Amino acid sequence: MFEPYQTISLGPLTVSYMMLFLMISVTIGYFFINWYMKHLEIDHKEKVADVLMMSLIIGVLTYKFWPFVIEPKLLTAPQNLLYYSGGPYAILVAIILSIGYFAFQFFKNGWHTQVIDSVIIGSAVSGFTFFFFIREYGRQNPLTFGYSSGEMIHHPVNFYFAWLILLTIIGAMVLISKEKKLGRSMFILIGLVFSYLIISPLQM
């Protein structure tokens, strides 16, 4: 597992592990969605894939350029484009814009609700990937396992999230028929809410 704000050089670019695994997890989620739509034999999966890709691009660009939206003076130095990304509410705004664009296209094209199942499950797979690799330190753990920081042991919050998400995905796939309208989506969304409620008291 990797520290979120440590950096790695990729050719001329230097990116944090958080940003790197965010891109990796989104890519894995995207390919899983395409595979799942093929598994469900959705007729318009190519159109859905194009819209999904545009939604992801909107989200990534929003996250990347958000610092320049809230602090326009950063644009006075072009090199800042390489170093700045994220910031307050960046992820929230990126998610809202991405979901908003996808929802608009979903209703405009009248797609089957199985498209929603595909996107929700793929997003959960993406979340599992991200949380599995990026450390999040929780509160002090009285037990002997977790992340060390000095003499303290912290709850490995991301590890808890990752495995609860995985169990939720498996539960949805095993317990809920793919024919049930939005059944797997609702199972996963409810599972994610309960996962957060369980883990949030352990967060710092």
Rank of each mutant, 00 (worst) to 15 (best):
M23Q: 07
I24A: 08
S25K: 10
T27F: 15
T27E: 01
T27I: 03
T27G: 10
T27Y: 12
I28D: 01
I28V: 13
G29E: 00
G29W: 07
Y30D: 01
Y30R: 02
F31W: 04
F31P: 00
F32M: 02
F32T: 01
F32I: 01
I33G: 04
I33S: 07
Y36Q: 07
Y36K: 08
M37W: 05
M37F: 07
M37P: 00
E41I: 05
I42H: 10
D43L: 14
D43V: 10
H44P: 00
H44W: 10
H44F: 06
H44I: 12
E46D: 09
E46W: 05
E46C: 00
E46I: 06
A49S: 15
V51T: 08
V51F: 05
M53V: 10
M54E: 04
M54N: 11
S55H: 09
L56I: 15
I57G: 11
I58D: 05
V60H: 08
V60R: 06
L61R: 08
Y63V: 07
K64P: 01
K64G: 06
F65V: 03
F65Y: 11
F65R: 01
W66S: 03
P67V: 14
F68M: 03
F68I: 09
F68W: 04
V69F: 04
V69D: 05
I70D: 03
E71S: 11
E71N: 11
P72D: 05
K73Q: 13
K73A: 11
L74E: 11
L74D: 05
L74T: 06
L75N: 08
T76K: 06
A77F: 15
P78A: 14
Q79K: 15
N80F: 15
N80C: 04
L81V: 10
L82F: 14
Y83R: 13
Y83Q: 10
Y84Q: 07
Y84C: 02
S85R: 10
S85M: 13
G86F: 04
G87Y: 12
G87E: 14
P88F: 15
P88S: 12
A90D: 12
A90W: 02
A90V: 03
L92M: 15
L92R: 07
L92T: 13
V93M: 09
V93E: 09
V93K: 06
L97A: 10
L97I: 12
S98D: 07
S98T: 04
I99T: 11
G100K: 05
Y101G: 06
F102V: 08
A103Q: 14
F104K: 10
Q105L: 13
Q105H: 11
Q105A: 15
F106W: 13
